[in-house]
Amino acid sequence: MADDNCIQTRDLVKDYSLGQQRVRALNHVTLNFVCGEFCGVVGPSGSGKTTLLNIMGSLDSPTSGRAIVLDRDIASLTHKEAAQLRNHHFGFIFQTFNLLPVYSVFENVEFPLLLLGYPASERKKMVLEALEWVKLTDKEKARPNQLSGGESQRVAVARAIVKKPKIVFADEPTANLDAQNSRHILNIMQSLNRQLQTTFIFSTHDEKVIQFLRRVVTLEDGRVTDDRVIENSGSES
């Protein structure tokens, strides 16, 4: 399974309208990601990292080309099918955490399971397990506004992995965190990748993140300029 292709993009193009102008965010991007990867898409701002993640995460559709994710062509999915795909198989981690402000930590992590219709007892077990992974069991009743940035991002990680998705897309997950918290979060994600065989795909330009990655895809002006496997990536040590 580890060698199976999880995501394939073929000649992926994404254009945006910016007033009268058309801006090409992705320019014929062709990539393969195998299941269980811990991989980052890096590059400067405006290079198309988030756009690529959004398309692979079925949040957006390409202008042309194909993105086959878990054997489904993203461009051909209806809104409902795309929502189902995200619901069942994807987890998302955002730069700004995006926790639901009116929910407690427990409820935020529980939310994806509610959408999937898990029974209450199973939900509780899975949420506590996820909070255990991110070392936040003591904060389960806290509200997002009572958490620090690092804690908020750990809740977001728990919410992304609680349903044990096949792929987690993390868009600049450490951009709002200090070095210590960044390292802590990355350690957690790396360990989850190993334990659960979950594929992690990051978009980042943070050097601290890059040190942890086992594969780095570099984008510049929407084109893949480099794609390299790193033999000795950073670890929990």
Binding site: N98, F111, L116, R159
Partner: peptide, 16 residues
């Protein structure tokens, strides 16, 4: 809007 986007990313359909 950001919360709406998050709900959609978590798997809620637009109509939900």
């Amino acid at each position: 809007r950001k919360e709406i986007g998050t709900l959609m990313a978590l798997g809620m359909t637009r109509w939900q």
